[in-house]
Design a protein around this nucleic acid. Structure first.
Lengths: 197, 197
DNA sequence: ACCGTATGTCGACAGCTGTGGACATGCAAG
DNA sequence: CTTGCATGTCCACAGCTGTCGACATACGGT
């Protein structure tokens, strides 16, 4: 790492930390938009105003860069606890996919690559899912949080990636109660242990 | 293996219909396994025992071949009506992803490509979703079927593509009731119109 | 038996990919 | 100033991709 002196910090024209951050930001945007395979290192470097070779220098490889991006993208993600499910359902069906959905969007577009999938699985289980499981009531919060994440990912996939017509019309709001109920069915503690009619 | 014409049937060594079918089968398997971008035409042709150039001859382009594969893959897909949701939840969480899930699997691995996504959206809305919407009770079956498809796609994504640990253990069966309830929440007609208890 | 044509085969093209080596440059320390 | 190293830049490599033109062959109708 760079040994930036604590007191002075004289705005150097050659700032490795700044270029590293610029690359990371550009990589996050490009990966989220094009997916792991679809994003080229030259495209990322160009968007960051940096040289392609610097990516290899600072992040080792494309996978290394991707891993850092994934961890970053899942820092702030939507919660699907009973008290947040109304908002989550609305965001999933009508939201533009801001920072709360960036992680899932990145995952959807990169899931086809096995290496990228392994990286994302690790990050999700280590960060996002753990956070969600801790906020969930009841038992088996780990498994239920996985199902909740899956549902959200599926909705985003159909709406934003596939552009499903039924999920992109101006009256998509009418589906919010259904999705809300589906999320609650997993997030809330079961009312009756066995089953229902 | 060669299809005979009605009267004579001279087992021709050069059978365009047979090679076309072989290419289509190999393409379906390869696309389902590697996704649209990940599957190469040379790989498909090699798996079919045919020459790469024949793909261009019979299907025009990679997109043309993919379109036929997608229509084929969505011919037989799982249903998520109230009476089938128990089986659907079990298949989604523990099944190996047979013919019932081939379409969704193909979609998940190819969704990152915008052109492929458009082809799949068209096929889904025209075949799968229409069939599911017709089988659903209640109102707004189109929108609800879209949500159901999204949920299933999300579960398959997390379990098979990402290899989510919580969805791949030997005791994944314990999550079936939760997923079943989530599917029912969308597939069944709402018990109370406005709200819930 | 012959020939037209459908069928299959070979090679080539331009374009892209991730990665690496070799070189130029600016900044800071002595 | 000079010197050393971190930082940035350029070019090249091998490998892959989808598409296409030109050629060889075998089959079906005559």
């Amino acid at each position: 790492m760079s040994q930036d002196a604590h007191p002075p910090a004289p705005a150097r024209r050659r700032d490795s930390a700044a270029t590293r951050a610029a690359i990371l930001k550009a990589a996050r945007e490009t990966f989220t938009q094009r997916g792991y395979d679809g994003a080229g290192l030259r495209e990322i470097a160009n968007a960051a105003g940096a040289d392609t070779r610097l990516i290899g220098r600072y992040f080792g490889s494309k996978e290394g860069l991707f891993a850092e991006v994934v961890d970053l993208a899942y820092e702030k993600s939507m919660m699907m606890t009973p008290e947040h499910n109304a908002e989550a359902a609305r965001t999933l069906l009508t939201g533009e996919g801001g920072a709360q959905a960036d992680g899932l969007l990145l995952t959807l577009r990169s899931a086809s690559n096995p290496r990228a999938a392994a990286i994302m699985r690790d990050s999700i289980e280590r960060n996002y899912q753990r956070r969600l499981a801790d906020a969930l009531p009841g038992t088996d919060t780990t498994g239920r949080s996985a199902v909740l994440i899956a549902i959200c990912a599926g909705v985003l996939l159909n709406r934003l990636l596939l552009g499903h017509t039924a999920l992109n019309g101006p009256d998509t709001e009418r589906l919010i109660p259904y999705l809300h109920a589906a999320l609650d069915a997993v997030a809330k503690v079961p009312q009756s242990a066995g089953g229902e009619k």
